[in-house]
Amino acid sequence: MIDWFLDTFGGVGQRVLHGVRRLGYATRFFLLTLAKSGTSFARFGLVVKEIYSAGVLSLVIILVSGLFVGMVLGFQGYNTLARYGSESALGVLVALSLVRELGPVVSALLFAGRAGSAMTAEIGLMKATEQLVAMDMMAVDPVARVVAPRLWGGILSMPLLSAMFSAVGVFGGYLVGVVLIGVDEGSFWSQMQAAVDFREDIVNGVIKSIVFGIAVTAIAVFEGYDAPPTAEGVSRATTRTVVTSSLVILGLDFIMTAFMFRG
């Protein structure tokens, strides 16, 4: 009986300890990367290159997804609002849903799948092919030269992608609501303008996207740097980046929403 108990719960305890250790290690790595970010700002071209890789190359998936999410919101929103004779508030519904929630969250989830996984795979493969060792032996710090620019590239890209997601989403809602269904264009835009508060809604949405950007990129670079230098190790690290980032985004979103929109 005691053996069974130890076998069952001992394993759980070990997993928890491993998780806590790994969290501590990841936090130390994140702080180390921040401390070694001087090169990234002294040679900002390195960060610009990463903004291109993480941000510009993610534009297509972000814009297309934003458009479709906005169009679906247009349909669903109109359907619900029409029951109460409030179709004219469609613009408010679309805009608030996007800038408060869907813009930051969905763009961060897409960013984790597109850019986060690519970052992990790239750094992991650099490690597996000894490129990071070669750099270290050339007296070039791989954390300062490879990891920090990617971290800052991701952090700077995320809020911009999220803003573009929301803007295109609002346009998608307009296409469906105004152009396709025939909601009054004046009330669509004027009610949106009156109801969306810059400080309460837009700034809070931007703060969310910045936090998501830090979380996703920090997870992606850590997983890449920590990946075992084998094909299987890199593949598992890439999967972990997407899964962990997605869960962290949703968890952080709940916490931030609870604090930001308490009413």
Partner: peptide
């Protein structure tokens, strides 16, 4: 200077 086993060129 160090030459690693398979060169480790930056790809």
């Amino acid at each position: 200077g160090m030459l690693l086993q398979f060169g480790a060129l930056f790809t």
